Simulated scan of single mutants.
Amino acid sequence: MKARTNTFLGAAALAAGALLLSGCSAITGSGEAAAAGPDLPIDDEISTTVDTTLTELLPSAIAEKGRLDIAVDIPFPPMAMYDDSNRAIGFDPELGRLLGQKLGIDVSLNKQAFDSVIPSLQAGKNDIIMSGMNDTPERQETVSFIDYTHGGFAILVPAGNPDGITTQTDLCGMTVSVQKATVQGDLLRATECGSDPVVVTELPSDLDAQTALRAGKSDAYVADAVVAEYVAATTDDGDAFDVVRDPENPAGFNPVYSGIGVLKAETELIDAIQQALQALIDEGTYQQVLERNNIGAYAVDSAEVNQGSDQ
């Protein structure tokens, strides 16, 4: 993360009706399509239903505005990206739509550069952040996190795992590609290998690191677990790479929490989002969105706040 089931259209239409009955504005959406109507799940996206008891938890200012403004850094697959019709998809946009449905309020998914997502809350431009943001003590000085994933770093190898890599120490003596200036590079260099250390190849971008593995210039590639899962599932229809799964580290190496950011003073909104996320966890739609985006292994069991302070 950044240290930085199929549902039919009929279900979405029912949800839209529920939103209208709950008195929500129907003038917002994501991007330039904001005036076209509520931003709801479509086609095979996961859908849910409104819980009016949760709607009552929303702060009056947001209820009066009639929408929840969500800061999303796009693209950052599989957390957020655009489809062929320029619709925001991925874990964050799809979970954001579900939260809106559950709370009975429209959502506006607003593209925001990652380094400006917190200032956008402080300026009143957005209400919450859904952008794969790590829950850290430093960030908790400004925002509180409703944690929604727990994952670390993962090792990607060629399909079939020809070198039989099973854990981090198996990388000793091998060449591993990573994106330049990432924590992964530091962790690999610190691997206890004796006289046969990991040979770390740092490249300008994450895509460059993937390409090095595909071209045989590295034996493995290391990245955030959720990114590695996505790359393995989507490259050559899932036939190019395998993710190394270490039984001792099921959520990846050095796992951290990531979550939905809300200004720490907005206690009512924090409570509303936490309870809405818990409702999605309880009904199973949260897990469906994770699995739809190939990151089902990084689920949280419950919607907790600021677990990053315990890491």
Rank of each mutant, 00 (worst) to 15 (best):
F114L: 15
I128G: 01
L277W: 05
I74H: 04
C172A: 01
S108A: 14
D69V: 12
L269P: 11
T49M: 11
K2H: 08
D39C: 00
P162I: 02
K125F: 09
A265D: 15
D206M: 12
T49Q: 11
L203G: 06
N293R: 04
N161Q: 06
E94C: 08
F153P: 01
I270H: 06
A33S: 00
H150K: 09
P204W: 03
Y221D: 14
V50Q: 05
T201R: 11
R67G: 00
S47C: 13
V226M: 12
V300P: 06
A297H: 02
G90V: 01
G151D: 05
D147V: 04
Q101L: 15
G308H: 08
V305N: 07
A3I: 14
I260S: 04
D92M: 12
D208L: 06
T5Y: 09
N254R: 03
I165M: 09
P41G: 02
S30V: 00
N86Y: 13
G261V: 02
C193T: 01
M79E: 07
A181N: 15
P158H: 04
S131F: 06
M174Q: 12
S120W: 07
A26P: 04
E32M: 02
D239Y: 05
F8Y: 06
T55M: 12
K217T: 05
K217G: 02
L207S: 09
A225W: 08
R87D: 00
P119S: 00
